[in-house]
Design a protein around this nucleic acid. Structure first.
Lengths: 214, 214
DNA sequence: ACCTGAACACCGTTCAAGT
DNA sequence: ACCTGAACACCGTTCAAGT
């Protein structure tokens, strides 16, 4: 037959296909390599470099795919505290659809340019609610930090804290026994943390608006 | 001269030296390789494998070093909410001494076996405070998730959110202008988030103790 | 512009050989 | 038990050669 060589009549590769294939590999193996990616695309490794300037760029394509599910429309329709709750749950669930991807993506900045839309909506919402200008970004960042930490916690291998016979671990053993196990463990931690965080923000806001008057 | 070959009279390597050298490399380069580590130790790569069963094991040695600064003694001496605050700040500062290490360590479980001591103290403290048995671990985990997320945020490259001329970004621009820049940005997010989290936990505790009686 | 095929430097791990 | 030296399979990236 003879292998086609040289520029093909119609391009066979693009960022979309590359990102999709890479995410599939991550979902399946927890990681991806350039050779593995090329194989799955039925292409030579060097071909990929015509569409993405390196492995790091492919990782960003994966990030775009994973985070594309997140939207911040709640901030336009719900009260700020409910919006944060909805956003956080949506955020976490986007990552939970691709558990293995979290470790790949967590080490770089979360704030992909596409999430500026969310930032915009969130900032407006918090501003309307009465948060001081110079704290708005901090509030958003704090919530995002918690979500990312919770996402990493959710994919952590079953902790299996085996407590030895040491003294003073009575209460810890009790707490371990009473705590849910499996996926429910991380979920409960997320629920409790998010509830506390939002509730605390409510109090902080109240302090601000009270002291500054109507 | 002739290179020494075979078993040396006194061992020249041990976990301590390996972990220390690896952390030094991480601090300097943001990462480490087995060849690089061997070179710094003045040793062959294969020698390392006699003391650590692989690169992942060396990462754990690094983790032990970084987290050894964290202690949970506050839970024995301070009220639970102040103890959480002190613990969180100490935790973050331990990571901030080795900023580059965070990315290396964040992807694996945080809960190193050595941190069981902290868990024990924290569990006792929260139990005494009146948190329900089955929520104690969730509270600790939630705080830890937030800290880890904040640590990752702190080492994120300067976000440089450049907002285009699009509509509705007025408030975002305002918030960006009002927010502190540099290291103060992440610090403020951490401060606000931690304050809110602890304040929210206080409220949650109050709800529990009120509904269950004295 | 886009793909191939071969090359390069580098990595983590293994293992027989030495004492 | 502990270190050497060489080997292996694999990785990310580059680049001339093709159309």
């Amino acid at each position: 037959v003879g292998r086609a060589v040289g520029r093909p009549r119609t391009p066979q590769l693009n960022s979309e296909r590359i990102g999709a294939a890479a995410l599939e590999l991550v979902d399946a193996d927890g990681n991806f390599t350039m050779p593995g990616l090329a194989q799955r695309l039925g292409v030579q490794v060097s071909s990929i470099y015509h569409h993405a300037p390196g492995r790091a760029a492919v990782v960003e394509l994966v990030r775009d795919r994973v985070t594309s599910d997140i939207d911040g429309s709640w901030f336009d329709t719900l009260p700020w505290d409910q919006a944060i709750d909805a956003w956080a749950r949506n955020y976490l669930s986007a990552f939970r659809k691709h558990p293995a991807a979290i470790r790949l993506l967590a080490t770089e900045t979360i704030s992909a340019p596409h999430s500026i839309a969310v930032f915009t909506a969130a900032a407006s919402s918090l501003y309307r609610a009465g948060f001081p200008d110079n704290e708005i970004l901090a509030v958003i960042t704090a919530v995002e930090s918690f979500i990312l930490g919770a996402a990493l916690d959710a994919v952590a291998p079953a902790t299996m804290i085996t407590v030895s016979e040491a003294e003073g671990t009575e209460t810890l053993r009790l707490a371990l026994a009473a705590a849910p196990s499996g996926p429910a463990r991380a979920q409960q931690a997320f629920d409790v943390g998010l509830a506390a965080l939002v509730e605390g923000l409510r109090t902080l806001l109240l302090d601000h608006t009270e002291s500054s008057g109507p």
